[in-house]
Design a protein around this nucleic acid. Structure first.
Lengths: 359, 359
DNA sequence: TGCGGTTACTGTAGCGGTACAGAAGAGACG
DNA sequence: CGTCTCTTCTGTACCGCTACAGTAACCGCA
């Protein structure tokens, strides 16, 4: 049986192809009698409905949007509860619009296939990618409606971010207020250099790490504190190395600010292994308010961001951008910045006399 | 500036449209000189490359595959580490093939859009869906290459499953061997009825829950044990209700078999809240060997399945199915069944005299 | 009875590519 | 020098659908 098309059905019923098309796509354009007859004939012929690819070409819309994840972040995206909640929120927000979500990686296929260039879609979210990855370049060149998330905002492109800087500042200020003077920072980056960092602002770190670093320094510098900074891989697998670099020293910090809760959990573990009690000997602050943070013992002091809201906002911004694009409307790109909030739990306390010997 | 197409570029360079197409898609078909010139002209005109939608129509391939998740499982898919690892493994396995992964939900959009029917793709994975959801029907009618995962195998459709039954049997046997006689089962299902279940095999539960139930009963029945069965929602949010139904009774079980580690964790928590010690007063067994299981205190006895291998196998089966489909080859559908393995940790122990009063 | 306004259907002209068969020219070879 | 084979480029015929501008019939109304 050859594949059935609109024409097949049209011939069978004795109407024009256009009428069959309308039967499927614009029911109000024909009498319900005829429509019934056409639908029956279609079912009879095994015609499922308009071919999505052909329809996409003719209509100029595919019904799917992409989300670009760096391939480094791919594994990460599915192992970190923060990233998965974000993706889940997007999917959930998109579902009622009928748009499917396509996962785009920055990797290249065998025949030089680049998803960001070669997959049909109506728009895309760019999530926490390095500023200039080839995949992102393709998306931009294609002039697809885009939304940047956790990414340096660019003019003309809507963006969704959180108050990384002020959140980090609050976290650092909290430590300062508790009386800490020797503070360590454990941050993360997609690429190196890893280990002890001399100039925390050198190198081109991703947006969120950079903003948080700024925030931490805002508060620390004002208090005259110069933190010890260690950078490690974004994968939480080998947190211990970074943590040890910070803690297993002559004069270890009395408090550590971490890029994420996952990293903070690793620090707590390492500290425990080294015989340090948290928070008595070491205060630890995370970031994100991962569900993990509340479950941990001691429960983690952290900076809350609402990833579900972030996902929703991103999805909404994207659908809006697609609509604008379709209508040819210009409209200024909105840059959304969601609030963050310090959540004080049990992993922070004033330094003890012993651990903070008056410098 | 009007949109550039192959023709635009062809006119500019003074060659045929076909040659420009070849310059992009089949570089070996023209001299590298001319190719250079064409690519330059294209860049100049802002032509990014062949339009994916048009190419999909002409070639009959889109470069994307779908994964169907019930919308109930959508939120679930992104909150359970087991599901996300699975998705991550698929994405990772797919990346080098250049195929993108499109998330399909069973929900329907505003204009009656059904992703499973209306999104162009080359094949799809069906993950743990109810047997006959409309979305799945559409996929089948479209005659897309499919692979079933954690789903009742169907003739002609490749499938990937794990040894749910024998794994569950081993778990139950472990409890029997420890001497437990009063055993509870806490299982999950996408739809009700929830609560105490008279006939654990009644209703049409999904494949995995059914197979595990069979396995548990295999071992329990042989030992002459009739378990108390409680079913609850697949969402781990409200585990406590189910756990309490089991534990907060006149003669509570001395051991509980759980559908997943997430549920088992909930049971442990509830038990603790009720003043029961695990494993002294209550043994708990999970399923999956979620990373969570090893982290928990007490570390959870569970049945390990390798979700990463499952994801890989599913992706491989799908690409194979797509290839067969393209080549018109028939080939029998392979049904893969991955092993499971009982992992004994610290959440199981013999019943104490007190908790198991000789019946 | 004539006329504007609906409703129901049709025809044409694309959407932007790719497959495939072929044509033209350039060497290679006997 | 004729023929054969390559390489390089071209022309045609789709892929399957939709937008849009008709046309024809029908309806109510003055």
């Amino acid at each position: 049986m050859a594949k059935a098309t609109l024409q097949t059905v049209a011939d069978r019923v004795g109407v024009s192809r256009m009428t069959v098309s309308n039967a499927f796509s614009r029911p109000d354009q024909l009498s319900s009698d005829l429509r019934r007859k056409i639908l029956d004939a279609a079912a009879d012929l095994g015609y499922v409905g308009p071919d999505p690819a052909a329809r996409a070409l003719a209509r100029g819309a595919t019904g799917a949007v992409g989300v670009l994840l760096t391939n480094s972040s791919l594994r990460f995206a599915f192992s970190d509860e923060i990233a998965t909640s974000f993706l889940g929120a997007i999917a959930e927000e998109l579902a009622p619009t009928g748009l499917a979500l396509t996962l785009l990686t920055t990797s290249t296929g065998p025949a030089g296939v680049v998803p960001a260039r070669d997959v049909a879609m109506d728009g895309a979210l760019v999530y926490s990618c390095e500023a200039r990855t080839p995949a992102l370049d393709w998306l931009i060149r294609r002039r697809l409606p885009l939304v940047f998330v956790d990414q340096t905002p660019a003019p003309g492109i809507p963006s969704v971010n959180v108050e990384d800087r002020s959140g980090a500042r609050a976290a650092a200020q909290h430590l300062v207020d508790l009386g800490h003077r020797r503070v360590g920072i454990l941050t993360a980056g997609a690429d190196g250099p890893y280990g002890l960092v001399a100039d925390p602002f050198a190198g081109r770190a991703a947006y969120a790490p950079r903003r948080r670093m700024l925030g931490w320094h805002d508060a620390l510098e004002r208090a005259g504190i110069r933190p010890t900074v260690v950078r490690q891989s974004a994968y939480s697998d080998r947190v211990d190395d970074g943590a040890r670099l910070l803690l297993d020293t002559e004069e270890p910090p009395t408090a550590v600010l971490c890029f994420s809760d996952a990293i903070a959990a690793g620090v707590v573990r390492s500290a425990t292994d080294l015989g340090l009690r948290v928070p008595a000997d070491l205060s630890v602050v995370g970031f994100d308010d991962n569900p993990l943070a509340a479950r941990m013992r001691p429960a983690l002091t952290t900076v809350r961001q609402d990833v579900t809201a972030k996902g929703r906002a991103a999805a909404a911004a994207l659908t809006a951008a697609i609509e604008r694009h379709r209508d040819g409307a210009a409209g200024r790109a909105r840059h959304i910045r969601l609030p963050t909030e310090l959540v004080v739990r049990d992993s922070t306390a004033p330094p003890t006399a012993m651990s903070a010997p008056g410098s």
